[in-house]
């Protein structure tokens, strides 16, 4: 009914978090307090990682919004969510769906993103170790 709203709301939160992290990273770079030694996951900045999560949440929500629009579950006129104008039972059903399907969708995307970030960090770390090994010899 409106399961994509959960992901869209999370995208706003992630977007805000991304800007805070980006600001912090810029501040650190200006102060020259960037970490000198290599750490697992420090190759790709957190603002970029969060940017990918934001993109996934907005992209997925936008595509699902088109589907809901064609199904008549969402409209361009207030109250925008069709179920909201169909009485308390429909609203209750909509909220239940958002709480179950919507939250599971969000969890699935965050899990996929976390796995992706771990894989990329692992390969970057492996590459860094391989580059350091001949130098040590």
């Amino acid at each position: 009914m409106a399961c994509f709203v959960v992901s869209a709301a999370a995208a706003i939160g992630v977007g805000a978090a991304k800007y805070i992290v980006k600001h912090h990273e810029k501040k650190m770079a200006l102060k020259g307090e960037e970490p000198k030694e290599y750490k697992f996951g420090s190759d790709v900045k957190w603002s970029k990682k969060l940017g990918y999560l934001e993109m996934a949440l907005w992209g997925g929500s936008a595509v699902l919004a088109i589907e809901h629009l064609l199904h008549g579950e969402v409209s361009f006129v207030p109250p925008f969510l069709t179920a909201a104008g169909e009485g308390p039972e429909a609203v209750s059903e909509m909220l239940t769906e958002m709480g179950t399907v919507g939250v599971t969708m969000l969890a699935a995307i965050v899990t996929a993103w976390a796995i992706g970030v771990l894989i990329v960090d692992f390969f970057k770390f492996k590459k860094h170790k391989a580059q350091q090994a001949p130098e040590a010899k």
Binding site: C3, M55, G59, G60, V63, L64, V101, M105, A108
Partner: peptide
């Protein structure tokens, strides 16, 4: 092209959850 891949990847994942439910 990462934008296109991530968008469709996320939509696929979201619809997969919908299909399971």
């Amino acid at each position: 092209l990462e934008v296109l891949t991530i968008t469709f990847g996320a939509a696929t994942l979201m619809w997969l959850v919908d299909v399971i439910y």
